[in-house]
Design a protein around this nucleic acid. Structure first.
Length: 419
RNA sequence: GGAGAGGUGGCCGAGUGGUCGAAGGCGCCAGACUCGAAAUCUGGUAGGGUGGUAACGCCCUCGUGGGUUCGACUCCCACCCUCUCCGCCA
């Protein structure tokens, strides 16, 4: 969420940003709602001020004749205050509903474009494999090797759920282990996290769990939702806290069980493990001083590249364009792996600098020694390894003519052979 | 799940109907002392909103939300969380 003052003072900039992001949003309605909310607050404050004055006056020893009119006025003010409070609460709710739709500002270097077709390729790293046989996709390969069971998944939990089997299970564990090790080497504190989170945490991160096209599974009779990523639980970890500046930057790595309804994406990229309702991910998260966030963002990209280089997966780095950025992201880079089964690049990691967009709503601040006041931290997230997509890349790129799969040495696993 | 205790500023901790944003301490900042530091002494030190060029004013915040009252940190209700004991359990 952006600060209302920013939206007021820099209306043109905000409006341009909304256009760049190809969003529809009535800024004037927001500004009007803001006017109403502030007017209501002024009104309410005036009533409260008078009430406080009466309270103060009543402390002095007073005769019953002096007290009576004060008590009466106080009584009346209480009623007026209640009415004013309702007006104020309603106008604030209206304002907030619009305010949270305003996307974050955007890095000046982010490419301007309306959708993912206009993302900018920054570099390609690694050699795409050449096959002297027609390459198969991961579904065909994995089913032949008894590494996955989609039918079982569908029977028990529905479409887009799956079981991993045999060596794929060890592969998942090895990938998680590898990613955790790398993060630890880079100074991250590792976490397992809850797989559910409260509404206010979800909204603070920028998810809208009860909205119409939500990606989120909600748990009935509670204000909990299944998390779509550990970005939610890691980012929410420090909600409401005031940190010492010396504690920053704070790096967290987490095992992330991801649950996504994938509403509205039926039929899109739906084959196999590419887009599923549940997967496991190792997530990076950082809380930084504002001055550090851009450098930290680069560092996240570097770590992602290190991981995929060590996994020997050919990939390219993409600078996400304005129209394809999520609302909280100030800038976003994706790594896309070469996927021979689809003959195209497929997203395997994503890292966003969300600046203070999330910390404002989650109220995560830091304090510097000797300085007055507090400042909002910057928050960044990034994928170390999203297991299901990493498996696609490894299996498809590592396939051999005899149907076996060659795996990168860093995982410490044997290659996978037909039984 | 049952019984009890408790949630106050960056931290610890007092405060049980009158203004208290809150004693005291720690920490931090500035100054004094010192060649310098430590110790000591003096003063300062919450966050947010809103109005104002500013000085400064006003409002909110003592877990959260309601209620009682002219007035609530203080009384009542609900919820959340923490701790102790008992039960249950991987």
């Amino acid at each position: 969420m952006l600060e209302m003052r920013t939206i007021r003072d820099q209306k043109e900039l905000i409006a341009q940003n909304i256009r760049n992001r190809a969003l529809q949003l009535d800024l004037d309605a927001l500004l009007a709602a803001d006017e109403r909310a502030r007017a209501a607050k002024t009104e309410l404050d005036a009533i409260r001020q008078r009430r406080n004055e009466i309270g103060k006056a009543m402390q002095a020893p007073l005769s019953p004749q002096q007290r009576a009119p004060l008590v009466e006025e106080g009584r009346q003010l209480k009623e007026r205050e209640a009415a004013a409070e309702q007006v104020h609460a309603a106008s604030e709710a209206q304002r907030l509903a619009l305010q949270v739709q305003v996307p974050n500002l955007t890095h000046p270097d982010a490419p301007i474009g309306k959708d993912d077709a206009e993302n900018k390729e920054l570099r390609v790293v690694g050699e795409r494999p050449h096959f002297d046989f027609p390459p198969k996709d991961h579904v065909e390969l994995m089913e032949a090797l008894q590494l996955v069971d989609f039918e079982g998944g569908a029977k028990v939990a529905g479409q887009k759920f799956y079981y991993l089997k045999n060596q794929a299970v060890l592969l998942e564990i090895a990938l998680m282990q590898f990613a955790c090790r790398v993060l630890q080497e880079h100074g991250f504190t590792l976490y397992t996290t809850p797989d559910v989170a409260r509404q206010d945490i979800l909204s603070g991160i920028g998810f809208n769990p009860r909205g119409e096209s939500t990606q989120i599974y909600n748990i009935e009779n509670s204000d909990l939702s299944l998390v779509a990523t550990a970005e939610i639980t890691l980012g929410g970890l420090l909600a409401g806290d005031i940190l010492d500046a010396e504690q920053l930057p704070m790096l967290c790595g987490g095992i992330s069980h991801c649950f996504r309804t994938e509403a509205g994406s039926a039929g899109r990229e739906s084959r196999g493990l590419y887009r599923v309702h549940q997967f496991t991910k190792i997530e990076m998260f950082a809380f930084t001083r504002p001055e550090e966030s851009e450098a930290m963002h680069q560092r996240f990209v570097d770590i992602e590249e290190e991981i995929y280089q060590r996994l020997e997966v050919p990939y390219r780095v993409v600078d996400i364009c304005t129209g394809d950025l999520g609302a909280p992201a100030y800038r976003k880079f994706d790594l896309e792996a070469w996927m021979p089964g689809r003959q195209r690049w497929g997203e395997i990691t994503s890292t966003s600098n969300c600046t203070d967009y999330q910390s404002r709503r989650l109220n995560i601040r830091f304090k510097e020694r000797g300085k007055k006041g507090t400042r909002l931290v910057h928050m960044l997230n990034g994928t170390a390894i999203a297991v299901s997509r990493a498996i696609i890349a490894l299996v498809e790129n590592g396939q051999q003519a005899d149907g076996s799969i060659r795996l990168p040495k860093v995982l410490g696993l044997e290659d996978i052979h037909p039984r």
